[in-house]
Design a binder for these strands. Structure first.
Lengths: 144, 144
DNA sequence: TTTCCATTTCGGAATCATTCCAGTTTGGTT
DNA sequence: AACCAAACTGGAATGATTCCGAAATGGAAA
């Protein structure tokens, strides 16, 4: 499964005419290995360093930007908090824990028809983002 | 109508034991006058200066934070973009134009039951945020 | 395989919204 | 009128992100 995601990402990379560098390969590996963790730049940077000899923070930023602009990954932007990256491109709802910062996916398809919205408001939807902030199961258990 | 919102805000301020200062009064005025515009800090700061003799940027930040923490207003956080503030506390969907940055409200109640989510995922929802990014009617008309 | 150049990488400086800080002022209660 | 916790100030600090010019390199073409 992870192999498929990885091969798919590399395939898309070439399709888009982007070069396959050791840095990018390392970043892809980290993304795939942590695909259910919505990793941030710091984690990706740290882990990528273990895989490729030379990777700079600038490169990680540039690469993640490039990838998300080309639709390889999804960028979840946050305020006063590192952006998070998701290999899962499907529309889903993010459950974001206020306490530990964990981001879980909630897979109920959003019952919002872009067509209805366009018809009623004239607004053309290109990206959907649904966040539910609150507390995850684990944090609720833990005292304090 | 606007009068009611203003009086209501001032009422809540006193209820919460917060002091009514000329700076806060000016900020409330700006919020109410621009209630359908989702104003950001810069706009609020600039306009508030016209109303009160002395207002500092720090105060605007502190005040907006205080207000939203006390539930007087809603803070919409953005990445790489000023936060926006909303006097309308009801759950609604924000239509955010990628081009002009306008934020419009879309008033269809979200058909997501917090109870269902809690039951299925153990996640307790405290805040809902739904954003649909795309292009507004006006920007679609305009060429280039 | 060698050449070549657009792309990528690098690290350090710059950006910018926001927060922090320490000192001063002030609303509103006693 | 006195008092003090809360609020205000402006300048410095923060931290994620972007920008920059120079150096390195993937991979297509020769």
């Amino acid at each position: 499964m992870e192999i498929n995601i990885k091969e798919d990402l590399i395939g898309q990379l070439k399709e888009k005419g982007l070069k396959l560098t050791p840095q990018r390969l390392a970043i892809i590996d980290v993304l795939v290995e942590n695909c259910d963790r919505h990793p941030g730049v710091t984690l990706i940077f740290t882990e990528a360093r273990k895989k490729a000899k030379r990777v700079s923070l600038s490169t990680v930023y540039a690469t993640l930007k490039e990838f998300s602009e080309n639709g390889l990954i999804k960028e979840l932007e946050f305020d006063r908090m590192e952006n998070r990256y998701d290999v899962d491109l499907s529309d889903h709802i993010n459950l974001i824990c206020k306490r530990c910062g964990t981001i879980a996916d909630y897979d109920i398809p959003a019952p919002l028809e872009p067509k209805d919205i366009a018809r009623k408001s004239g607004f053309v939807v290109t990206d959907t983002r649904m966040e539910l902030h609150g507390y995850c199961r684990d944090c609720l258990k833990r005292p304090d």
